[in-house]
Structure formats: structure tokens, C-alpha cells
Simulated scan of single mutants.
Amino acid sequence: MKRFIWLLFLVPFALMAEQYTLDELIDYGLKNSLTIQSSGLTYESIRSNLTSAKLNLLPEISLDLGVRNDFYHPETRKASDLSSSAGFSISKSLSLNDPYWYNYKYAQLDEKRGALDLQSKISSYAYNVFTAYLDVLSSQKQLLSLNKNLEIQTRVWEQTKILNQLGKNTSFDVKESEIAVMNSRISIMQLENTIATKRRELFGLVNMKDEGYDLADLEPDKELTIPDFSPETSYAIKTLQNELSRTQLSLKQNKT
């Protein structure tokens, strides 16, 4: 008996687990999307170039080691002298038009632009998953309405047939109700095909196998606040600022 009660307690949690949530699909997609992975590799390559540019700015270090052994004539009493020496030097040449310094500044700008592009693609990808998810949810709710309408149309058809048997309507009324039921069924079949197509698009976007679980409904976040719009946070503005900085750096390099 206790085991049965425990199983009943676990049933709601099992049902909750067999649902897809928007956050889960977005997180899974960000980790497995080939597009996002490719963008991430591109950004890592840009960061690697920045690291190389930093290393090129480091001074050159040279280390000198030497050993000396002085030999004397065998008839002399003085023994051979063994001595060693070591030294190192650090040097770095700087000029007003040092290519390594400009390469480093360009690499910095490239890294900032790469970070902007990656974040933009992540945001765009998450939005695409959201719209695809919402599209499926909307179609599923529409399907529920059509199924309820079919139930109503079916009951009307059954009542129409009974009334026809009682002689209170015509065969035309029965046929009209039957056609309404058929149209409802056709609409449901078409919408089911549409939902199947939209689910394939959604899970293809996420790069996940669709196990056929329901999509969890979206609940509004009452504590969500929309931040004030600031032009400085716009991707387009930041991109233009980055291009402007690159142009100014190029002009400065050409003048020196």
C-alpha cells in the first residue's frame, strides 16, 4: 500500500519531466547548434590572434653561457684555471610606426568586434528558437479549439439526424451538418500536418531529436522589467564605433 501511494506521488513529477521547456531547448541548442559552434570557434581564433599580438610586443631575451679552461706548461707548478661566465640581455626596439604595436591595436579591435558578433548571433539564435517554440504552441492551442468545435459540430449533426427522423427538419439540414463535420475534420488534419512541420523546424533548429513530448506553456514573468533603451548598447552603434576606431587607427598609422 505504501509503495502504491509513493508511486502516485511520483506520477506528477514524471509527467512534468516529459515536457519540453523553452529554456531547455535554447540551452541545448546553444551547446549543439553547428552555427553557434562555428561562431564560437571563429571568436576563439580571433582571441588567439590577440594573444599572439601581445606576445610580439614582449622584449627579446638572450642568454649567454661560457666555460673557459686555461692550460699551462707541464713544468710549471701552476695548475690549470677553469672559469665560467653567464649573462643575459633584454632588448626591445620601439618606433613611431612599430608594426607590432599596430597589429596589437588592430587585434584588440578585432576581438571586440568578434565578441559583438558572437553575442549578436547568440541573441538572434535564441530569438529564432523562441519564435519557433511560440509558433508551435499557438498552433497547438488552435488545434484544441478545432477539436472542441468538431465535438460541437458532431453533436449538432447527431441532433439533426434525430430531428430528421422525427420529421422536424429536412435531409438538406442533415447533409449541411454532415458537411460541417467533414470540414472540421479536414481543418484538423491540415493543422496537424502544419504542427508536425513546425515541430520539425523547431527541433531541427535546436539540433535535437523530437521525442514527441508536449511543449510547456509559457508563463509571464511578473517580476520582469524591461531596461531603458540606450543607443550605446545597440549592436549597430557598437559596430559603427568599432569601425570608426579602426579607421582612426589606420589614419594614424599612415601619418607616422
Rank of each mutant, 00 (worst) to 15 (best):
residue 81 D to W: 02
residue 207 N to M: 09
residue 162 I to P: 00
residue 44 E to S: 10
residue 23 D to M: 05
residue 223 E to V: 08
residue 84 S to H: 13
residue 58 L to K: 08
residue 240 L to T: 12
residue 175 K to P: 00
residue 69 N to G: 01
residue 143 L to Q: 10
residue 110 D to A: 07
residue 215 L to A: 03
residue 37 Q to V: 08
residue 177 S to K: 05
residue 16 M to L: 15
residue 65 L to Q: 07
residue 208 M to G: 00
residue 2 K to W: 07
residue 61 I to D: 06
residue 217 D to C: 02
residue 217 D to K: 12
residue 179 I to Y: 09
residue 28 Y to R: 06
residue 103 N to H: 07
residue 85 S to N: 15
residue 193 N to F: 03
residue 248 Q to A: 12
residue 6 W to F: 14
residue 174 V to H: 03
residue 124 S to E: 08
residue 126 A to K: 04
residue 252 K to A: 12
residue 109 L to H: 04
residue 95 S to H: 06
residue 188 I to D: 07
residue 239 T to E: 15
residue 142 Q to H: 06
residue 111 E to K: 10
residue 1 M to V: 10
residue 172 F to W: 08
residue 38 S to L: 12
residue 150 L to C: 02
residue 171 S to V: 10
residue 89 S to H: 12
residue 7 L to E: 08
residue 28 Y to K: 06
residue 11 V to T: 09
residue 16 M to S: 11
residue 68 R to G: 01
residue 18 E to W: 03
residue 238 K to L: 06
residue 216 A to D: 01
residue 158 E to W: 08
residue 251 L to Y: 14
residue 95 S to N: 08
residue 34 L to H: 13
residue 156 V to R: 08
residue 20 Y to P: 02
residue 211 E to T: 02
residue 203 F to P: 01
residue 36 I to N: 04
residue 246 R to Q: 13
residue 172 F to P: 00
residue 30 L to C: 07
residue 55 L to C: 01
residue 32 N to H: 15
residue 47 R to V: 05
residue 64 D to M: 11
residue 92 K to M: 09
residue 216 A to P: 00
residue 29 G to L: 05
residue 175 K to F: 06
residue 206 V to K: 02
residue 146 L to S: 04
residue 167 G to D: 06
residue 168 K to P: 00
residue 63 L to Q: 13
residue 199 R to Y: 06
residue 54 K to G: 09
residue 22 L to R: 10
residue 145 S to G: 07
residue 151 E to D: 14
residue 156 V to Y: 09
residue 41 L to D: 08
residue 252 K to Q: 14
residue 141 K to S: 09
residue 51 T to G: 12
residue 255 K to M: 14
residue 15 L to M: 13
residue 200 R to V: 04
residue 37 Q to T: 11
residue 195 I to V: 13
residue 225 T to V: 15
residue 88 F to I: 05
residue 100 Y to P: 00
residue 99 P to R: 12
residue 29 G to M: 03
residue 89 S to K: 14
residue 49 N to W: 01
residue 93 S to Q: 10
residue 188 I to L: 10
residue 38 S to M: 10
residue 169 N to D: 09
residue 140 Q to V: 02
residue 245 S to H: 04
residue 82 L to H: 11
residue 100 Y to L: 03
residue 100 Y to V: 04
residue 65 L to T: 09
residue 223 E to A: 13
residue 236 A to L: 15
residue 199 R to A: 05
residue 193 N to Y: 06
residue 71 F to Q: 14
residue 4 F to C: 05
residue 112 K to C: 00
residue 77 R to A: 08
residue 148 K to W: 04
residue 108 Q to I: 07
residue 207 N to S: 14
residue 240 L to C: 04
residue 249 L to V: 08
